[in-house]
């Protein structure tokens, strides 16, 4: 690990200021990705700005038809929240299946979403549940947020403060775990909002994406058969020594159908 300066941010304004005045700063949330990256010397920030002591960044609330999860809320807290469980059980399930207990007690929703790891679970939740990512500067719609492999619409100096999920009529999340890492090879969130359906996929591609063809088909008829024959092109998907792009494309189809099966059962 290379040396760096370490700061506790007192509040969001303080964090934003430190982001501005330091040379090559990095925000530290749960550190589940950043710390291993530092240990392997794959990143060399000049300053780490730790958000852990900002009380205003933690907590869950239900506001009308939305569940608001503040950025520094850990996966374990989301998974155990009776509010989340009642409003969006699929989101509680998603959080409960991230990594292992150690990761779930350290990792945060803000850190996960900001990282846009292709194999992370939350991006499918954010995109599938039509969420809005709130920052210290603006609100970003989920559809505009994930822009590429480890890339988001966040600008330098911008800090995620909360993720605002729209409560669906019903939703289901399932993932296929990577045989070695346990990360999502394919994770699918299917959510229904009245006549509208969202199908969001993580794991398979460089970043989370929606499958419009499946959404259209499900909006016409919300049944497993509607998606059973909708193939995903493998061309843009990721592949590794365990799971090729072609296999991932196939799994998207299987898991989307299984999500619908679970919802109509």
């Amino acid at each position: 690990m290379h040396n760096f300066n370490y700061h506790h941010a007192a509040d969001i304004a303080d964090a934003a200021l430190k982001l501005k005045v330091t040379v090559e700063p990095k925000l530290l949330a749960g550190g589940m990705t950043l710390l291993p990256t530092l240990k392997n010397r794959l990143a060399q920030p000049s300053d780490l700005i730790d958000l852990a002591k900002i009380d205003g960044l933690k907590g869950i609330s239900v506001e009308g038809k939305e569940v608001v999860v503040k950025a520094m809320t850990t996966h374990a807290v989301v998974a155990a929240s009776t509010d989340v469980r009642k409003a969006i059980p699929a989101l509680a399930d998603l959080a409960d299946g991230i990594g292992d207990p150690a990761v779930r007690h350290r990792g945060t929703i803000g850190g996960s979403v900001a990282n846009s790891d292709p194999a992370a679970d939350y991006p499918a939740g954010v995109l599938g549940l039509d969420a809005v990512v709130e920052t210290n500067e603006r609100k970003i719609n989920a559809d505009d947020f994930f822009t590429g492999l480890f890339e988001t619409a966040l600008k330098p100096g911008e800090i995620i403060t909360a993720v605002r999920f729209k409560i669906p009529d019903r939703a289901h999340y399932m993932k296929f775990r990577h045989p070695a890492s346990g990360y999502a090879v394919v994770g699918v969130m299917v959510a229904q909002y009245g006549a509208k359906v969202r199908v969001a996929v993580t794991g398979a591609g460089p970043n989370a994406f929606r499958v419009r063809a499946m959404e259209d088909a499900l909006e016409k008829s919300f049944a497993p058969a509607s998606v059973a024959n909708i193939k995903i092109p493998a061309g843009d998907l990721l592949g590794d020594i365990h799971c090729s792009a072609e296999y991932r494309a196939h799994l998207v189809n299987v898991y989307a159908r299984r999500c619908v099966e679970a919802l109509v059962k």
């Binding site: 070695a180 890492s181 365990h242």
Partner: peptide, 13 residues
């Protein structure tokens, strides 16, 4: 070597 970490090498759990 492509399977050089436990992220890539499948240890049974």
């Amino acid at each position: 070597l492509l399977s050089g970490t436990f992220m890539d090498y499948g240890m049974p759990r």
